[in-house]
Amino acid sequence: MKKEILDLQIAEATSPWEGFVLLKAEPTEGALPECRPGQFAQLRTGGALLRRPISIHNVEEGGRRVWFLVQAVGRGTRWFQTLKAGDCLNAVMPLGNGFGMPGSGDRVLLVGGGVGVAPLLFQGQRLRERGIPFAFLLGARSADLLLQLEEFRRVGEVFVATEDGSAGECGLVTQHSAFAAPYTLVQTCGPTPMMRAVARLAHEQGMRCEVSLENRMACGVGACLCCVTEDRTGHNRCVCTDGPVFGAEELNWD
């Protein structure tokens, strides 16, 4: 899959949730390169020197418009809040390996927490197109922090867990009754403690599990070796090129 440096023009920039920005953008010329769910883009920011790795939230039908859901946490990501329709955004994409594509016998649970829900929307779209049974399980501290709930509902069945009980079942995603159903594969993205707990639970229930990491990185293409995570054999693997999606059993998470 060829990686490209491309200029995107912002078609829509909104902040539906405090501290988050939703960007929808199209290439200023030519086509968007083919992207797989779970891959990411390195977005140039006016707020910092280095690019920021942001997962691909969605690619609209027709493959021309790409979505990014960004949490504004530092100088680099806060700059994305200043973008408006018509502005230009430089991206290096698509990067990383993306989620595995399940087989026809699979039933998939897509488990997201916080801004980590972003790549699951794209994955859900793809699973729906392929006719593979799946559901989303989205977790947040409270109902107002459930991001893109309506979009997820457009794509498939959505289970919700909130820590304060303000929406869906009260508790963590790992306490949700959805895990009682006979899923064969769990694909998850969110805070590391959540993903570790999800991976442990999936393992106990005999489900395969893929996790999407978001280590701090500089290059995004496997050159700087800054974003490494230790695998089960004690070797450092690049999250940008060997990941960001890993089989939970590959990682040194026990």
Partner: peptide
């Protein structure tokens, strides 16, 4: 090499 984190902007 060294453990993560290895980079700070």
């Amino acid at each position: 090499g060294n453990p993560y984190p290895r980079m700070a902007e």
